Amino acid sequence: MGLLKYKGYTGSVDYSEEDNCLYGKVLGMSKDAITYEGQDVNELRKDFEEAIDDYLRFCETKNKEPRVPYSGNLNIRITPEIHSRIAMMAMQAGTTINGFIRDTLANAVGITKPINI
């Protein structure tokens, strides 16, 4: 799957054999579906960018804060044993559980700079 990026939003690129066109949707927007399509990549990109601009204008006219694809908040469920081990490792590292998890995940996805939130 290809990806398009514009103004902090990321969109998918898919092909419909049945309709003989490219199409996609903005990723991470579970409550506000933003879709687009085109006959070629240039047309798809143009429709993607126009869809984002239309969404942002709509939000502005409704005095509504636009949704962002990923808020930075992530709730996970883990076993008590994992929770306990993470707490101990965080304490040994001299950080909080959130800081430990954030740094561990950043390292896992290849972000090596310290993250300040």
Rank of each mutant, 00 (worst) to 15 (best):
E65M: 09
I34H: 02
G2W: 06
E37L: 09
M29R: 03
N42M: 07
Y23K: 10
Y23V: 04
K62Q: 15
D54P: 04
V41S: 02
D19G: 00
G11M: 02
E50S: 11
N42I: 03
T10S: 04
A90P: 07
P66G: 00
S84W: 04
E65P: 00
Y36E: 07
D19N: 13
I34T: 01
G11R: 07
E17M: 03
S71E: 00
R57S: 15
I78C: 11
M29H: 09
R77F: 08
G110P: 14
N98T: 05
G8I: 07
A87D: 12
T112A: 00
D103L: 05
R77Q: 06
P80M: 11
I86A: 13
I52H: 08
P66D: 08
G94Y: 00
T35D: 05
V68F: 03
I76F: 07
V68D: 01
F58E: 01
V26A: 07
F100C: 04
T104F: 04
K62F: 09
K64H: 11
I117L: 14
K62W: 02
T95P: 01
D54A: 13
A108G: 02
Y9T: 02
Y15F: 15
N107Y: 14
N116Q: 15
M29Y: 06
T61Q: 04
V41D: 10
G99M: 02
K46D: 13
M89L: 15
K46V: 01
I78Q: 01
C59F: 01
Y23E: 05
I76K: 00
G72R: 08
Y6F: 15
A33G: 03
A108I: 00
R57I: 10
S71G: 11
V109Y: 10
A90W: 10
E81L: 04
G99P: 04
K113D: 13
V68E: 02
A51Y: 10
A106W: 09
I117D: 10
T35R: 02
Y6T: 08
M91K: 14
Y70G: 10
E50F: 06
M89Q: 13
E17F: 06
K5N: 15
A90E: 15
K5S: 15
V68I: 09
F58R: 05
I82T: 08
N73Q: 14
Q39C: 03
T79I: 01
N63P: 01
F58A: 02
R67K: 08
